[in-house]
């Protein structure tokens, strides 16, 4: 399954995002931030790419600053 990953400026934002998305019934997982994308914050939120719009909506409603990316291919 193709995954997406959400990046954040702070760990607190990542943890808030996890809570909000789990509460919204989304299947997410906190993972180490892929180094290809950023070194901004140590953890990122992985999700099923098909849910990208819902994830973005939940995070916007919770006023969590974030960036959504497709998960880079694992070498």
């Amino acid at each position: 399954m193709k995954h997406g990953v959400v990046l954040f400026h702070t760990t607190s934002a990542a943890l808030r995002a996890e809570k909000l998305t789990v509460r919204a019934g989304l299947d997410v997982k906190l993972v180490p931030t892929p180094r290809e994308l950023s070194s901004d914050c140590g953890i990122a939120l992985r999700f099923a790419w098909g849910e990208a719009a819902r994830v973005a909506n939940v995070l916007a409603a919770g006023a969590v600053e974030h960036e959504v990316h497709p998960m880079p291919e694992q070498g």
Binding site: T10, T11, S12, A14, L15, R16, E18, K19, L30, V31, P32, T33, C41, G42, I43
Partner: peptide, 22 residues
């Protein structure tokens, strides 16, 4: 150490700190 690493113990610590913050 919350927020320093991506492993499970760092995340577990971060969750506790975040929950109290909330």
């Amino acid at each position: 150490n919350p927020g320093r690493s991506g492993h499970r113990l760092s995340i577990a610590a971060g969750r506790i700190v975040y929950d109290v913050r909330e």
